[in-house]
């Protein structure tokens, strides 16, 4: 059973779905801009840009737009993994997935990638111009660095998202859970507020999320702060590998419950 075959299948599914569904395509193009506007609105509501610059030494527009992009991309795995089994259940496809011999970890690992690529590509179109505007040509390099780091953060997020999704599905299958889990993960990742400024307890809890360390690397880079990039990366990757078995376990726990109740046909 090859991971690339599953990945190819998922890419085909996601991209066909997107291209053949005009509203989704439209939203996807609009998404980064709406997100940016929203982030700027929140940002300005929280204080004037001068205060922000004084406090963090960085233009808030640049900071917020980067933060939005990070969130939008990295959280996609949590979204997809929470949403997909519910969709498949409704769509009548879940019975065929559960009764298939597919390696569960490979399958769930593959799920978020198509959406990741969409968001990373689309999102890039929103941050690249802003970076160039503020930094000139150097902005191109900087934004490429940031996009690359976010991509790493995305990958590192998947097993954690599988773990969270499995636990959530096991507790109760509901669309509403997404709306509870999403903001919690969002806050703990420390995206909108530089991570190293949040209270220690928050920092510790946030450290359970592998990608939070990548977020920190990005933030320190933007703020020109000293950072031990190697150490942060090492921690993030270690967490990634620790969440692999945890994710497999949580999906299994969910499936066991599911089969006990009986997987619904529709």
């Amino acid at each position: 059973m090859s991971f690339t075959d599953i990945l190819r299948a998922e890419f085909k599914l996601e991209y066909n779905d997107m291209l053949r569904r005009k509203s989704v395509l439209f939203m996807l193009i609009m998404y980064p801009y709406l997100f940016t506007l929203f982030a700027l609105f929140i940002g300005y509501a929280g204080g004037s840009p001068e205060v922000f610059v004084e406090k963090f030494g960085l233009n808030p527009v640049l900071y917020l737009i980067t933060s939005s992009y990070i969130l939008m991309s990295i959280l996609a795995s949590v979204d997809v993994l929470l949403w997909r089994p519910l969709y498949d259940s409704e769509n009548g496809t879940l019975v065929y997935i559960i009764s298939s011999p597919v390696n569960r970890l490979k399958y769930y690992m593959a799920l978020p990638f198509p959406r990741y690529t969409e968001l990373l590509l689309m999102g890039a179109t929103s941050i690249l111009p802003v970076y160039v505007y503020y930094y000139g040509l150097e902005g191109v390099l900087l934004s490429l660095l940031v996009i690359t780091l976010i991509a790493v953060g995305c990958v590192l997020m998947v097993p954690f998202a599988i773990f969270v999704a499995g636990v959530c599905h096991r507790v109760g299958e509901s669309w509403r859970i997404i709306n509870i889990v999403r903001p919690i993960v969002m806050i703990l990742m420390g995206v909108y507020y530089p991570r190293f400024y949040i209270p220690l307890i928050g920092y510790i809890i946030g450290s359970l999320i592998p990608s939070s360390f990548i977020v920190e690397i990005i933030q320190r880079t933007l703020l020109h702060l000293e950072s031990n990039t190697h150490l942060l990366m090492a921690i993030a990757f270690t967490l990634f590998f620790l969440y692999l078995p945890a994710g497999a376990w949580s999906i299994k726990a969910w499936e066991v419950k599911k089969v006990k109740e009986g997987v619904k046909i529709s």
């Binding site: 085909k12 066909n16 569904r21």
Partner: peptide, 30 residues
């Protein structure tokens, strides 16, 4: 396995693409 005939595939994929999807899930080499 064949359960209810009314559903169980992805609407935005055609017949062949749906079969390709499940072939990957079933672990068939491409």
């Amino acid at each position: 396995l064949m359960l209810t005939v009314e559903k169980g595939f992805y609407g935005k994929l055609n017949g062949r693409e749906n079969l390709e999807y499940f072939a990957a899930l079933y672990g068939l080499p491409r």
